[in-house]
Design a binder for these strands. Structure first.
Lengths: 111, 111
DNA sequence: AGCCTATACCTATAACTAATAGGTAATATA
DNA sequence: TATATTACCTATTAGTTATAGGTATAGGCT
């Protein structure tokens, strides 16, 4: 049971993570809040979504991580690599195409 | 192998089908073309996506079908039910929320 | 001291569903 | 006659989000 595949969320964690980490380095827990904030509380991704996404993206070479030692708590900072930025560009194109297509279909009322 | 989960497509077949069939009755094969056309060729859903979607939506009471007898070929016409329209309204709200959130996060550059 | 909340990381499992790749059959078209 | 188009269909795969857990430290409150 329970919503595992909510509408319109496929690709969203990857897009938001690559996007936010291409602007500035962040650690996972911080990123969870950044996602909520940057989407104006419209999208909230739980830690159980964000951490696996980070690991997957790093293993694919789209993110690079470093451990912060001088911090009180152990933190793993991530940032988007050059390959990650190319992937981001690709995702942005997909997003424009799909959202454009949907909005065109929805706007058909007034056409 | 091969793209089974392309980005940003979750919920899209359901949304487009409910939307188009809430405007006018159509049969599956026609709907495939209508989806391509209404999205300005941005989104193309194969028959293998559309037919299962139609069957699923009908079994959930969101669509109703009738068979056209006087046609040369056997055609099954579908239209969105009242329940389907309520579901559509829900999906449209989700779409606004998610796409709004994403666009807010993407627009952060200029903020 | 004891308790709760927040911080910060993590994993296993389930659920769902879009896409692919097939398949049937009749009718136009070249 | 051969091919493309119309019109329907299903089985399977693949991928990935969400949930529900879990660990451990630090700080605030009673």
């Amino acid at each position: 049971m329970s919503k595992t595949n909510p509408p319109f969320m496929s690709g969203v964690p990857e897009l938001l993570v690559l996007r936010l980490l291409s602007q500035q380095e962040m650690y996972g827990y911080e990123l969870v809040r950044a996602i909520r904030h940057s989407t104006l509380e419209s999208i909230s991704l739980a830690e159980g979504v964000v951490y696996p996404t980070l690991h997957s993206l790093e293993s694919r070479g789209l993110l690079r991580s470093r451990e912060a030692s001088n911090s009180v708590r152990p933190r793993v900072y991530y940032k988007t690599t050059a390959r990650g930025k190319r992937r981001l560009k690709e995702l942005l194109q997909d997003w424009d195409r799909v959202s454009g297509g949907i909005n065109a279909a929805l706007g058909e009322l007034y056409a």
